[in-house]
Design a protein around this nucleic acid. Structure first.
Lengths: 229, 229
DNA sequence: GCTATAATTTAGTCTAGACTAAATTATAAG
DNA sequence: CTTATAATTTAGTCTAGACTAAATTATAGC
């Protein structure tokens, strides 16, 4: 059982790196220097530099082999999850309490996640009713940093004819989020797949709740995650 | 009319220095290097260094003459007021929405004030109903950075026999705040001065609303500000 | 008006975390 | 198997904002 490291012992940058590595390795495998650099808008050299420090810390927060990418240690993973919890609680707060729109929350949460105390985190979670998912449908780790299960089927892989429920929307692209918001394609919505083009990943779907048909391109089909009903 | 400088153009440290100078010069006159150093828990040399930078900026944020202390320029004052507004709005939020106690809010607000966006500030003010005073009774600058009038009579200067209303409590000492909170001595409370000792500043007062008598020493008599009813 | 003391400033260091340019290593194509 | 290209790492710089130690200036007491 690894002791969890209190966030105030980690600098903002450190937390940002851990969170980036966590998110990049969700898909499996190690995170490449250049993809971390991209995500944090930082030069690859800076990443190498920081990653070496993270690996040399006691306890180490990442494992690192030159030229082969980085993975989180258990301590690193827990620290990342703590930041993810804060980020997603704050997103939930921003939409539900302060009336932010979907696409505005990410940036704001990105700064606030580093400024709140453990007490704030706890009180916020209570105020929001210990939510298990944020506004994009991303799972919020609980106070013990356990993640609830969340769906993993991208809409473009759903079988034609099937009716599914949107449970999550990839949130790295504000413009895309705004468009999905316009369509009403939010977590909870039911969708029937009318046709699915395997070659160019174009979809024709019916938004069952609005009785409306729309066509979605590859980016949208990949961004919307669904579960069977 | 000086253009106001957006907070995101100022580093956290810069905002901290400006706010400290603002608060220290409220009493009138310039702020001494050592008093700024004390307030920010930083060495006097660091203060000299930073103050010189603030004076050399375009536009300058402070006026500075070696060995004679610092004052804010109008630009500096507006920037400080912006931070003060954020700080006090956040304090109000922490007590009214997240259920923080009086003495817990300051530290938390101290970090959050640097992490919020103009949108957050605006939404928060709306959520809270554009409050004019924070939980300690300190005036909150409005969106144009105008300060509401606030009372300035310390309790120990009120005439014996007079009934006054608490309107503000100095908030630099958490232990003192906790004690005042226990007594119920909060903004809004009515107090009758029974006796006032001019030599050692000891007070005997009646808390009219609770029908209770208490004795207050110098620190408390100075910390509680009142207005005539 | 001098002098001891306190306050302030100067000068020089340090650290975190970014950067660029150059060197190295891995990979894909022939 | 070699080589061109892409990715990564190394080496060396830079900046903000802190520090300490030493030098300077102001002030209070005689």
């Amino acid at each position: 059982m690894a002791a969890t490291i209190e966030p105030q012992l980690l600098t903002e940058s450190t937390q940002d790196y851990l969170k980036a590595i966590y998110e990049l390795t969700q898909a499996g495998g190690g995170a490449a220097t250049s993809s971390i650099a991209d995500r944090l808008s930082v030069s690859p050299a800076s990443v190498t530099n920081m990653v070496q420090k993270l690996a040399e810390r006691q306890p180490p927060l990442v494992t690192y082999r030159k030229h082969y990418g980085v993975e989180l240690t258990n301590e690193g993973r827990l620290a990342a999850l703590r930041t993810v919890r804060r980020h997603r609680l704050i997103e939930q707060f921003l939409t539900h309490v302060l009336g932010y729109s979907w696409d505005e929350v990410h940036q704001e949460a990105e700064r606030l996640e580093h400024a709140i105390s453990p007490l704030f985190e706890e009180r916020l979670a209570i105020l929001l009713g210990e939510p298990r998912f944020d506004p994009h449908g991303d799972p919020i780790p609980d106070a013990n940093l356990t993640l609830p299960d969340s769906c993993a089927l991208p809409l473009y892989r759903a079988a034609p004819g099937q009716v599914v429920r949107v449970c999550r929307v990839r949130n790295d692209n504000p413009a895309l989020l705004r468009y999905l918001d316009e369509l009403g394609l939010r977590p909870g919505l039911r969708v029937r797949v009318i046709s699915s083009q395997p070659v160019d990943y174009t979809l024709q779907v019916e938004l069952v709740d609005y009785d409306k048909q729309v066509v979605l391109g590859q980016a949208l089909g990949e961004a919307v995650m669904v579960e069977a009903i």
